[in-house]
């Protein structure tokens, strides 16, 4: 398949006299194939928006290579900007302009035919409110307007950063349908979102980023299959024994997540090892089942951002991925 977006070893650091150097992107790789809906996931502060801004020429990278639709960027960005529609972070518009004025100004600047304005307003459901000032719009309506502005160019690649932000349930479903329809019409969509169930539903492939590095990538099913293997749910006859069981299993090298009435164990090769170990401690299992993970649990495991009881996780507390060169697949994400 042809790649429409390729990133290799992207680096970006922010230097501060007080806080020193922070690597927002630390050798990040990514590849998005043509015609796919690709999910781009990562905890807050992991480098998602920095990646998108760098790709779109808003931020100057410190190193690495990027290609969009076959052109090196940022050097050749002007050649492809007309074919890339994007929303980056929360949509912001002049509050006193109407939606129609806003789109019309963009259409004039981008030499887009004016009839396209009505088409995109219809697509995002703002046709009847298009002559109202943006300041009267709700967050969800602004989000729709942002999507409309990104669609105005009839892009080959559509980059949407949190497009469902502020949308009502109906709006989220409409957005899902819109994205699928666009993909079916040949538009490649790169979707960054924290609504993981949504990503799992509509994306063909995903890239997960943590602390500026890629921690997982590939088709959604493959990522789920790879990371759900070896996860079991354990219930005990006596719930009060859960802390003791958790301690014993952790000592034995299992990755344990404590829930109120059960434990989730990752990295289990044979279920019998668990039962044998617990029985040896006088702790008796009432249920032990293999769990098929969803994208959310895979994400939480890979980024190590699952909430722990009694602890408040800080923004930069995520999984430190394997350094470049040690197990990294490298290249254009291949």
């Amino acid at each position: 398949m042809t790649a429409v977006l390729e990133i290799e070893g992207l680096q970006k650091s922010y230097r501060s006299r007080r806080r020193g150097t922070r690597n927002a992107l630390d050798g990040f790789d990514m590849r998005v194939e043509a015609g796919q809906v690709h999910g781009f996931l990562g905890p807050n502060g992991s480098g998602k928006t920095t990646t998108l801004r760098t790709l779109l020429g808003l931020i100057r990278p410190d190193g690495g290579r990027m290609r969009l639709l076959g052109h090196e960027v940022p050097a050749d960005l002007s050649a492809v900007a007309g074919q890339v529609g994007a929303i980056v972070e929360s949509p912001q518009f002049f509050p006193h302009f109407t939606a129609r004025d806003t789109l019309s100004l963009l259409a004039t600047a981008g030499q887009v035919r004016s009839t396209r304005i009505d088409e995109v307003l219809e697509l995002v459901g703002l046709r009847d409110r298009s002559r109202e000032r943006v300041k009267t719009y709700s967050l969800g309506m602004k989000q729709r307007l942002a999507v409309a502005s990104a669609l105005l160019k009839e892009p080959r690649l559509l980059i949407l950063d949190e497009p469902a932000n502020g949308l009502d349930p109906g709006g989220i479903r409409e957005m899902r349908t819109l994205v699928r329809n666009l993909a079916e019409a040949g538009t490649t969509v790169l979707l960054s979102s924290h609504i993981l169930a949504e990503i799992q539903l509509i994306c063909d492939s995903v890239t997960i980023i943590s602390l500026g590095r890629r921690v997982a990538f590939g088709p959604v099913e493959k990522v789920l299959a790879t990371h759900s293997a070896g996860t079991v749910r354990v219930r005990l006859e006596v719930v009060a024994d859960l802390p003791a069981a958790s301690e014993a299993l952790t000592r034995a090298g299992f990755r344990v997540t404590r829930e109120p009435d059960h434990l989730l164990l990752a990295g289990v090769e044979q279920a019998a090892m668990v039962t044998r170990l617990l029985a040896g401690q006088g702790l008796y299992v009432s249920e032990l089942v293999w769990v098929e993970a969803d994208l959310e649990s895979v994400f939480l495991e890979l980024t190590a951002t699952a909430p722990a009881p009694g602890q408040s996780r800080q923004v930069d507390q995520s999984a430190r991925p394997t350094p470049v060169g040690q197990g990294s697949t490298g290249g254009w994400g291949a």
Partner: peptide, 14 residues
Amino acid sequence: NTGGMMTMLLWRPK
């Protein structure tokens, strides 16, 4: 202030 400059640069990256 409103992000209009960023939007414009997404259309015209010069």
